[in-house]
Design a protein around this nucleic acid. Structure first.
Lengths: 344, 344
DNA sequence: CTGAAAGCGCTTACAG
DNA sequence: CTGAAAGCGCTTACAG
């Protein structure tokens, strides 16, 4: 049995009230003498207050929950690390929930976290909500509204539920990738899209082309789903269109592209320039190190947590929900060079 | 304000006791009629019991804590995913703690988790305990003993604190890797070690050689620390000794080896065979896909959680602390072939 | 079949 | 400067 505040009170010959006051450093009430005695006794027994009881009494748990779509994509552990780091610094603990892209499990976690009285939530929506997405979002919206706790959405936004949102500036990222390719002299630039959540990357691709007066050719675009396989498939189609460069919606698909290129007897970057997105650890390690757009996962996680804690400390401020967009940064490695014919 | 059991009791015209009994499905006491009414009202308001209050009353929180050395090594998120999955299935929630290899932060988390009354702990020790390791382990031992909750250690064991331990069979893994190289006809097999926690991998390497009557040459071994850099450095030394194969203590170091080999004008596997350890995602993606030893992170995580929950359900069984070792499995890819001179 | 009461381990007005 | 009492939202002997 652990020692309790009552035990300390008894041994010190004071009330539980006094013990609580001393241990929580409440100001200007307690005589230095009793303060010391209580502190000594607490130290002697290494008293650690029972957070469960504290939480019940104060109605504040100092715990946060994070719901992640998976832990396979290295971006998500990085995000979690950032959130946890900032939480820890502020004495919050973090419940880890991995919904494995399942809509129903996601909903389940929302309930669990509510039951457990987390003070706030960091939420990444699952990407593949196969059946009845509207219904799913409706339920999420209801659960979130009912739970009454602040939420910050990361990476994947919900149209109908206004709340703080932390994300990389995907549009700018797509633009940056494409601009870089353009600056190297490419004009036939293919693109493999990601899932609908990330349509902004494609928007950036189009914007960059249009700013250069290059018309967007549907036949230079392929639909992808972020998998290596879909990158591979997309590249096969795009390569047939004789593009000289490809901007892949993420690094995994870029890997698929490089496979397809190799199979087609094309060298990267001499015959095909390639840019990815994320700066996944594989980017550094690919046969040809990949030029890509860095997504600062850990920093974004810290920011998300910071935004959440801000809400918690100013509960009735009623600040409008806000977007926090991170500037993408281009990491140049070896997968891009000017197109054949133009000099390197 | 959330609805409470008291609210339901009032509306149903029964006592809180009855509400509690009904909602927890306690058997054979309540008339079907009142049972139904209580259930209906609870459903109407979507009542979700306050877990904090439940925890305080029952002195059981249904929460576990996991302390990880970092979230960068993909093995750790995989482990966490396994733990969380099994925990979730059994209605436990999981606190995520990332000590970033810091001994002091690790100790801090031990205290935090104790304060928060977790029912059990899954612990991976930090690997680099620079200053006064003995003192650190002493403190860990004390904290763990004082906390009174079951602990399962994963991957990194503590000599002086007997408790359940889940790990890959590192000795067997090192043996398997080396045996494979031997079976391909290699006799000059170099090895780059990992950190001291993983000396068993090196043990396996030696065992395999000795079983074949090949003496262990210290000059064929280099000390590593699992970093790419240390693999690179080690390989430079080993290559000078004209080894025809290298077993690297993990995949990262294998990557360093492959860099060193390429720089030395050596092709993998024709001029140098290479085996790693872990089956890190990079293994598949390396310039030459890496033959390696799979460590089933998620399965190990599930197992660790299972072992922990077993302890929780049989608290006074006093079963001896036990080791749960996973069989390593060899994943053959393209980085190994017979040495030059022998036919492929 | 049901409820009053005590208790889990704290905090916090309130009174002195 | 200090303490008695009520309360946080549940559960659980115990009594009827």
């Amino acid at each position: 049995m652990r020692i309790t505040a009552k035990d300390i009170a008894r041994e010190a010959g004071v009330s539980e009230t006094t013990v609580s006051l001393v241990l929580n450093g409440r100001p200007a009430r307690i005589s230095e003498k009793t303060r010391k005695r209580v502190l000594e006794i607490a130290a002697k027994y290494r008293f650690a207050s029972n957070q469960i009881a504290v939480s019940l009494a104060t109605r504040k748990t100092y715990t946060l929950g994070i719901i992640l779509p998976n832990l396979t994509n290295p971006l998500f552990p990085r995000l979690a690390a950032g959130v946890e780091k900032h939480a820890q610094k502020n004495d919050y603990a973090l419940f880890l929930c991995n919904c494995e892209e399942s809509a129903s499990l996601f909903l389940h976690y929302l309930e669990v976290l509510q039951r457990r009285c987390t003070d706030g939530l960091i939420v990444l929506l699952p990407s593949e909500v196969d059946e009845r997405p509207d219904q799913f979002y409706q339920k999420v919206h209801e659960a979130l509204s009912a739970s009454q706790v602040p939420v910050v959405l990361v990476e994947r936004r919900m149209k109908d539920h206004p709340c703080d949102f932390v994300c990389i500036d995907n549009r700018r990222g797509g633009e940056l990738a494409t601009e870089y390719l353009l600056s190297m002299g490419h004009t036939r630039i293919g693109h493999i899209t990601g899932t609908p959540f990330f349509a902004e990357r494609t928007r950036g691709y189009k914007d960059a082309l249009e700013s250069c007066g290059i018309s967007v050719e549907p036949r230079w675009m392929a639909e992808g789903d972020f998998s290596i396989e879909s990158g591979y498939r997309g590249a096969r189609r795009l390569l047939a269109e004789r593009v000289t460069a490809i901007f892949a919606g993420n690094d995994e698909m870029a890997l698929g592209v490089s496979k397809a290129a190799t199979e087609a007897g094309l060298r990267i970057p001499e015959d095909l320039s390639l840019v990815g997105f994320d700066d996944n650890p594989i980017a550094k390690v690919m046969p040809v190190p990949l030029t890509t757009i860095l997504q600062p996962g850990e920093t974004m996680g810290e920011k998300a947590c910071e935004v959440l804690l801000d809400r918690l400390s100013n509960p009735d401020e009623e600040r409008e929900p806000q977007d926090f967009l991170f500037d993408p940064v281009l990491i140049t490695r070896r997968s891009v060079c000017p197109p054949a014919g133009k000099n390197c």
